[in-house]
Design a protein around this nucleic acid. Structure first.
Lengths: 353, 353
DNA sequence: CTGAAAGCGCTTACAG
DNA sequence: CTGAAAGCGCTTACAG
């Protein structure tokens, strides 16, 4: 708190108001005066106190981000998308992890009510949703990013999970897989349900079948996916295509299949969901339904900032399209609608060795 | 900015000073007065303005976190560690990603100089290091988390990368591997160098050898690791143990080995570094040198907050120990110093199927 | 184009 | 135990 606007004003022989004017780039200042003031600011290394500016202006230029936990596989990508638009816009990013449970939410609420942030971007708010709706009703700009497919009663961005399931089904069909299995979950995840619905829907009327017996739920983890496949195999169920709602579960499924000596994708084609870190590291690399996490984060941030600037925000949720990323866990097939091909070319030209 | 301290004071028939006293839990307030004020605060839903408090107190209770990018594999874990100590301490977390290059750093600097934060926690500051040192010299509390092994001229926390390499070597020895190879990099990464040094050091005087020809550098990515192994194999070099400085590279190595039909861990034992997301998802799951990212983040945060409370901060870097996490990419061997066994038991009792 | 003054909403000695 | 006043460092009408 060294040099203040008062110091600069005194040194320049003007009033604080005039310094404030050049600080804020107002045009109604004499060229010479402005130059002199700027020079003094440079000489003294003056930097306005954001605390004081915030108080005087009644806003903070800071956005609160509420995230359930920071190590969900897709969180880094989403957060980077948010940061990429928030920071260049001159806003700060105040990060709150709700991982601490009720006390953490309490602190978040206190921060918000204390006007530490101008708006809130909430990722999968869960139990905090009700609270956010109240805040929104009371005038706080709020945008939620919904990775769970549960439509929020607030401006929100999400993805078309049903269509994601549909794309997975189309790939199975294109690969000629007729006896399908699916790992859903975690329990109560609406995105999982939407996804499963899309998958099943697209299958009806085709030659392929997805029996209820072949649908099993897991907890979203690698181990969960592993155990799920073990259950299917213990029950002596046959399947030549497996769709897992979540790449970690798909990774676990690959492990179980490999241990059982079942060839992927030869005997079983495996498709995951999310295109998050595990996907590119499995063996074979995982074909998956890509959700544009970073785009979603960026869109939410843009909507929030727009709202702060007084622009209207769409009331209906912004829904992003998913796409298919083809890697090694499904056989190479002709182009499937919405499919992206990654690394396919490069893999094809590998030396036999 | 609805109800202010003045409103509460008026309603309670006291001065703002008295309200401020109960707000800050000072003992020198009449019980009855305090009760009345608290009641009114509750009724009116009064919440102090953090902007005003910050200005009046001359601090923000906010910590700036400067991170190079948010999607480095270990960043989420580190950040969660930071958040887990910062938030319960009542501090906010202002996140800055330096991914935007110079302009991003410029905004960071402006925020800091504008006193938007009370202290800074910088992760691998790189080019910003010099600037941070200046700030630190000028009195700003700074702690750096160094994942690269480059000792910062500032209070810092890091890990013992040399010892990490040593642990990897010990595991190779315990597994009886005598012809070793290593993938280093990315270029110019001091941690990589430290790691390689520890690995080579531990090998000298044993029967095992790591020839210069068997050391190859890659860029840290999965594809980089894949390409590196291809290079080794094209050169017709034999090795029965491979250490990669970085789990993503190790994952790529596994892919290349598998394509070439080389059994892991039977013919080649593979050890990675970091224990970051790819590690648990590869096939076989990756044995790796664990770096305690979350502990490191937490320690840095604690040191910074301690510093803000006036506690002295150690000038020497806080160095964390690494440990070995045994998974499937190395053969089961007797206990190696510093080794943790994960999932080993569970894997062993899998049904043959 | 510029200044004096009030205001943003708290905290903190200083008196009593 | 409590209040009046000054202060934190800006911004913003209001005059001129």
């Amino acid at each position: 708190m060294r040099v203040t606007i008062a110091d600069v004003a005194r040194l320049a022989g003007v009033s604080k108001a005039t310094v404030s004017r050049v600080l804020n780039g107002r045009p109604d200042v004499d060229r010479a005066t402005q130059a002199r003031i700027e020079e003094i600011m440079a000489e003294t290394g003056y930097v306005p106190s954001s605390r004081a500016v915030d108080l005087a202006r009644g806003r903070t230029r800071t956005l609160g981000v509420l995230a359930p936990t920071l190590h969900t596989p897709w969180m880094p990508e989403l957060l980077q998308g948010v940061a990429d638009v928030v920071e260049p816009s001159g806003y700060g990013l105040l990060l709150h992890s709700a991982a601490g449970g009720a006390p953490a939410l309490e602190r978040f609420a206190a921060n918000v009510r204390g006007h530490a942030v101008d708006g809130v971007l909430a990722v999968d708010p869960g139990v905090a949703l009700e609270h956010l709706r109240d805040l929104h009703r009371d005038g706080l700009p709020v945008v939620v990013v919904d990775t769970g497919g549960s439509p929020a009663p607030l401006p929100s961005v999400g993805a078309d999970y049903t269509d994601g399931g549909r794309r997975a089904a189309e790939l199975m069909l294109a690969a000629g897989r007729l006896r399908l299995a699916m790992i859903t979950g975690p329990e109560g995840d609406p995105a999982g349900a939407a996804c499963a619905e899309g998958f099943a829907d697209r299958l009806t009327g085709t030659g392929a079948v997805l029996r209820a017996s072949h649908v099993t739920e897991a907890d979203g983890t690698e181990q969960g996916g592993y155990d799920a496949v073990q259950r299917l195999m213990r029950a002596r169920l046959f399947f030549d295509g497996l769709f897992a709602h979540g790449d970690p579960m798909a990774a676990g499924a690959l492990r179980a299949l490999q241990e059982a000596g079942r060839q992927v994708p030869g005997e079983v084609a495996v498709v995951g969901f999310g295109d998050v870190p595990p996907a590119a590291y499995t063996l074979p690399p995982l074909t998956t339904v890509r959700v544009p996490w970073s785009d979603m984060g960026a869109a939410a941030a843009r909507a929030l900032i727009g709202r702060l600037r007084g622009e209207p925000v769409a009331e209906e949720p912004m829904v992003f399209e998913t796409s298919l990323v083809s890697r090694g866990s499904t056989p190479p097939v002709g182009r499937v609608p919405g499919q992206r091909n990654r690394r396919a070319a490069r893999t094809a030209e590998l030396p036999a060795f």
